[in-house]
C-alpha cells in the first residue's frame, strides 16, 4: 500500500454564500488513480479545483478546512508554488491560442525557472511523448496549437501540464469533449501516468472510472457519500445512495 499523497480534512468551499461542498474528508493515495464521481452539480469540479487552489481565483470564493500535500497544509503555502506541484487539466481543452504547439509545452518550463534551449527541447519532446501526441505532431511542432483537433488539443494540454513536472495531476472530465478513440487514448495515458504521478480524475462516466481508477469517491449534493477501492465501490456499495447512482436508478 502506498502512502497518502494528498488528503483533505473537513473541506468546505463557498461561492459567495453558497456552500458548494461541505466538510469533505478524503485521502488520495500516492501513484494511484483516484476518481471522483457524482451527478452534475454535486461539487466534483469545486473539490478538485480546491486541490491546486484554483477555486480561490474566482471572485467571492472561500475555502475552509485543511488540504494536505505530503502532510503540509497547502492553504498556508504560496499558491503559485502549490500549482507547480499540483498540475491541472481542464474539461475543455484550453491551449494558449496565440502559441505554437512547441510553445504551449515549453511555456510551462518558463514559469518554473530558466532552462537551456537544449533542456527545453528535451522536456518538450518527453512531455509530448508521455501525452501520446509526439508521433502525430513531431513534424509540425511550430504549427499553431489551434490547428490540432479537439482530442489532440486535450493531449497537448496534458503534455503542457506534465512539462511542469508536477507531483499530482488533477483532471476535470478530460474526455467529456472527445470521441471514443481519443477517450481511449487518454485513458491509456492515465494508466501510464500513475507510474510516476498521483492522478485525481473527475468523471461523469462510470465505465471510465471502472477502467482507470484504483479508488473512487462518490459525491452527492456537496457531501462525500462513499469512498473505496473502485471494484468494491461498484460491486459492493455500502450506501444505498451509491448503489442507486451506479445502477442508474436515481432521483
Amino acid at each position: 500500500m502506498n502512502g497518502t499523497k494528498m488528503r483533505v480534512e473537513r473541506l468546505s468551499a463557498y461561492y459567495g454564500k453558497t456552500k458548494a461542498i461541505s466538510e469533505i474528508s478524503v485521502g488520495f493515495p500516492e501513484r494511484k488513480v483516484s476518481a471522483i464521481i457524482g451527478p452534475s452539480g454535486c461539487g466534483k469540479s469545486t473539490l478538485i479545483r480546491c486541490l491546486n487552489r484554483m477555486h480561490e481565483t474566482l471572485p467571492r470564493t472561500r475555502v475552509e478546512g485543511q488540504i494536505l500535500l505530503d502532510g503540509e497544509d497547502i492553504l498556508e503555502l504560496d499558491p503559485v508554488h502549490v500549482r507547480r506541484r499540483v498540475g491541472m487539466v481542464f474539461q475543455k481543452p484550453n491551449p494558449f491560442v496565440t502559441m505554437s504547439i512547441y510553445d504551449n509545452v515549453s511555456v510551462a518550463l518558463r514559469f518554473n525557472g530558466r532552462h537551456s534551449r537544449e533542456d527545453t527541447d528535451k522536456a518538450v519532446v518527453r512531455s509530448l511523448q508521455q501525452a501520446a501526441l509526439w508521433e502525430e505532431v513531431k513534424d509540425r511542432v511550430d504549427a499553431p496549437a489551434l490547428s490540432l483537433s479537439g482530442g489532440q488539443q486535450q493531449r497537448l494540454c496534458i503534455a503542457r501540464a506534465l512539462a511542469a513536472e508536477p507531483e499530482v495531476l488533477l483532471m476535470d472530465e478530460p474526455c467529456s469533449a472527445l470521441d471514443p478513440v481519443a477517450t481511449a487514448k487518454i485513458e491509456g495515458l492515465v494508466n501510464e501516468l500513475k507510474n510516476s504521478y498521483t492522478v485525481i480524475i473527475v468523471t461523469h462516466n462510470m465505465q471510465q472510472a471502472g477502467r482507470v481508477a484504483d479508488y473512487t469517491a462518490f459525491l452527492y449534493l456537496g457531501k462525500l457519500v462513499e469512498v473505496g477501492a473502485t471494484a468494491d465501490l461498484f460491486e459492493r456499495p455500502k450506501e444505498r445512495l451509491t448503489e442507486q447512482y451506479i445502477t442508474g436508478r436515481f432521483g
Partner: peptide, 14 residues
C-alpha cells in the same frame, strides 16, 4: 476567456 487565464495559473504562473 477565463480558460486562458486558468491555463496559465494552473501551470504555476504568477
Amino acid at each position: 476567456p477565463i480558460s486562458q487565464r486558468e491555463a496559465a495559473l494552473s501551470l504555476g504562473a504568477t
